[in-house]
Design a binder for these strands. Structure first.
Length: 121
DNA sequence: GGATTGACGGGAG
DNA sequence: ACTCCCGCCAATC
């Protein structure tokens, strides 16, 4: 069954706004992946754009950047372990648990916008 | 303005 | 499990 965007989702041509909106709507205690956000933003093959946008947006906007993990359920800060630890700590404080490898169970913690923000047609 | 570089992901071998 | 490889978008040189 096809999905249609939530009425409040910004226009398709404004990818940055879409990404911001989506990230801003991830509930506390849930996580989303770069690929997932790219998919719902209408650019399924551009997860890198999500990371790029998020990096910039984190500085000025108050987005919950820590709720965005990679497809493995892990923090994507290979070159900055301290930042990765901060991200995990923020999520743990919201009730998300991580295993010894620093990965969370996406089957449990992943946000499901199909239920929360998307409508069937 | 071309080239390079990422907080990425999926597929192929 | 691991190594390429390609796609896509924004920022930076």
């Amino acid at each position: 069954m096809p999905l249609t965007p939530h009425p409040e989702l910004p226009a398709l041509d404004d990818l940055s706004a879409r990404i911001d909106w989506l990230v801003g709507h991830i509930p506390s205690g849930r996580v989303a992946t770069y690929g997932q956000l790219a998919f719902y933003a209408g650019r399924a093959r551009a997860p890198r754009a999500v990371g790029n946008r998020l990096k910039r947006a984190t500085a000025d906007d108050g987005l919950p950047w820590w709720r965005v993990l990679n497809a493995q359920g892990a923090s994507s800060f290979a070159g900055d372990p301290a930042q990765a630890a901060r991200q995990r700590a923020l999520l743990v404080a919201e009730g998300v648990s991580f295993d010894a490898d620093g990965r969370c169970d996406l089957d449990v913690a992943q946000w499901d916008p199909e239920v929360t923000f998307w409508q069937e047609t």
